[in-house]
Design a protein around this nucleic acid. Structure first.
Lengths: 152, 152
DNA sequence: TATTGTTATACTCTATAACTATA
DNA sequence: TATAGTTATAGAGTATAACAATA
């Protein structure tokens, strides 16, 4: 459980913080991440693991380097992540004959099943938070966040 | 340096990820946090330390428990943070006669000076990223993020 | 009994550097 | 020589549990 800022007690002067994008982002990101992690607990997967499965589902045979580039995860950090997915037989590494340095990554049937369950949790989570916004607010937000993340 | 997702190579299918709030938040938050941390490097402070100084500046004598509640930091995690600020004489703990369990926290002149420098860095950072949005985009974004972070 | 601050500890995500085996 | 994956390690931020001093 995260400790959330006390937004009610106007007694405390937060200065410029409420006008800072990074502060607002940190707060919102933390709330969402906490909720999503809790929502995924029944499935036993963390958000990042689900993200990897999502990409694997749409791109069978992808190399680790490619997944890392797509999701913004460094090769060194991707290794233990894939290790665990493989240990739980949710994904597997297969040798690539053409390049024996690289691995082709594949989601397994068990991985697809887990991913489907995770998707349901995530969808519910998304609906839950979209409800906090006005109609069209989610699209607006995704647009704004995309602009921030991309130099454009 | 963070590895950012490859948004250009449309070769890879990211599935539902681009439509997920938590994923968009994670990406944007990471970009902003990285940039801000780098921007604050000359001052030698991390964003969270500056946040504490900001609150201290507007609320001299605040207790640790109150700062923690305001910023969403647990008491146990606040201790080393304050320790370092105190070690660098940017803030100080003073005993509270009325309650000898608690500390009153105060920003020092050196702390105010450091905070002023940090503010300039943060303002520049904010301008830099607000420029990625349309006019009024920042206010829109702050509004949406506030709604997400707050249940109501 | 409850609260304030503290210690100790663990987990997640991110980061760098250096290694191996291939290419 | 460059690349793919790996190992080892470190730093932030966040989390819990348990304790001492005080209320």
């Amino acid at each position: 459980m995260t400790i959330m800022p006390d937004t009610r007690s106007a007694a405390i002067d937060l200065g410029d913080l409420p006008r800072q994008l990074d502060y607002a982002l940190r707060r919102a990101q933390l709330v969402l991440a906490q909720d999503l992690s809790a929502a995924l607990e029944p499935v036993g997967l963390r958000p990042l693991q689900v993200a990897v499965l999502s990409v694997l589902r749409g791109n069978p045979g992808l190399r680790q380097s490619e997944i890392g580039a797509a999701l913004g995860i460094r090769p060194a950090n991707l290794v233990p992540l894939i290790d665990e997915l493989e240990r739980r037989t949710l994904a597997e590494r297969r040798p690539i004959p053409a390049d024996r340095r690289a691995n082709g990554l594949f989601i397994t049937p068990a991985g697809s099943a887990a991913h489907a369950k995770a998707r349901a949790c995530i969808d519910a989570h998304e609906v839950r938070f979209a409800a906090r916004l006005r109609a069209g607010g989610k699209d607006q937000l995704l647009n704004l966040l995309g602009r921030l993340a991309n130099p454009a």
